[in-house]
Design a protein around this nucleic acid. Sequence first.
DNA 1: TCAAAAGTGTTGACTTTACACCCATGG
DNA 2: CCATGGGTGTAAAGTCAACACTTTTGA
Lengths: 230, 230
Amino acid sequence: MVPQKIQDIKVAVDAVIFGYFDKKDLQILLIKRSIDPFKGGWAIPGGLVLDHENLEEAVRRELQEESGIKPDFLEQLYTFGNVDRDPRNRVVSVAYLGLVNPSYHELFADSDAEDAQWFSVHKLPKLAFDHQNIIDIALKRLRTKIQYQPIGFNLLNEEFPFSDLENLYRTIIGQEIDRRNFRKKIMSYGLLNETKNVKKEGSGRPGKLFTFNQEKYKEWEEQGFYFEIK
Amino acid sequence: MVPQKIQDIKVAVDAVIFGYFDKKDLQILLIKRSIDPFKGGWAIPGGLVLDHENLEEAVRRELQEESGIKPDFLEQLYTFGNVDRDPRNRVVSVAYLGLVNPSYHELFADSDAEDAQWFSVHKLPKLAFDHQNIIDIALKRLRTKIQYQPIGFNLLNEEFPFSDLENLYRTIIGQEIDRRNFRKKIMSYGLLNETKNVKKEGSGRPGKLFTFNQEKYKEWEEQGFYFEIK
DNA sequence: TCAAAAGTGTTGACTTTACACCCATGG
DNA sequence: CCATGGGTGTAAAGTCAACACTTTTGA
């Protein structure tokens, strides 16, 4: 196929992990680099793939090592392979997009990173390598994807008031939505199970709590829906 | 980030190239391997990335070398990185999806391949490596994508009768479509420019020839449309 | 004049949008 | 009783689906 000249390219994985805290912005997980290049700078988690592990295993391991996070949803995003991405070697990096409910995960920085933190997508620090570009692409994908697959639920608590879902969509899409029409649409998909519980905290009338229906989720995940928000 | 143990993984690119001949099935470009493993077997074009070239450059070079094809449309599909993909080394392969109008491209097998041929997606030979899997994923992507982006035009001649577009959709989606509704919908997007020419060959009433509107294409490519075919 | 493919409209069903007031609770 | 957020319906506009006959050409 190709002359067997020795190839000098490294393979890495990186992860853009989104988390959502109610009433706040959409957040992204960043780690502070403990080694050069960009030592002390912020970057998305990631690292070189080990010889014996599959790509997704590699991302999960790196996430674990660098931040303690185990994402609920994780899918391949895009592979970045330009020759000048890394000042040391040529590195081809397979980027993943992950979703996490941060209230179920404690963040800690392990050996491989000096620190790990959530940052609002609107207030990101300057990032190492081409990571800002990777995040931009991830955000675009998330915004598109949430409109035809029910992945948003991965960011919410197991039981959540309807308004959480509403705010999540508002936040991710960055656009006002009509509460009545939104509720009708979501309800029509049959994705939500009503529980008998109600939200306690906060002022105002307590909202019913919902869980989401895993079977319906799978159905809609496969066939997709069309959910344009006006 | 990660201990600098020497990594032993190779980086390759592969391409699933679709071509469409009027009145025929959708076709895929395959090459006959001239080296082991799978020597003499059929595979999708591809090969190792050179140190100094970007990923997309690598695919284009390999396609050129192995078949003489320069795809009109080419985008990254997915990266396949399981540990056991290749019996020799570990190879991570970045797969691309390409579209070509075969009547504008002569196929030839160059030094790197014994032969290069179009195969109907419905009559593929047994394929090397995990290439059948890659093709399955590419087909799925093509079928989905053609329903929200106007990429189909890349498969047609520069001037084409409306029925070509119709048949193309029928073929790719593998489903009957309503001619009247289809035409209305496509026309409403403003993607087509009517020419003064008509199709000559074939029996029956000659059809007007159309070209497609590059500017509108770009618009719709970015914003996407929603085109479910019933 | 026949066969083959091109071209073309309308109606009813359904879906989407726009829009505002009352309700339940806690302080 | 006030503030806060939760919960709900309807009508008009727009879009989609279903459906069949006429036109143009070449043989």
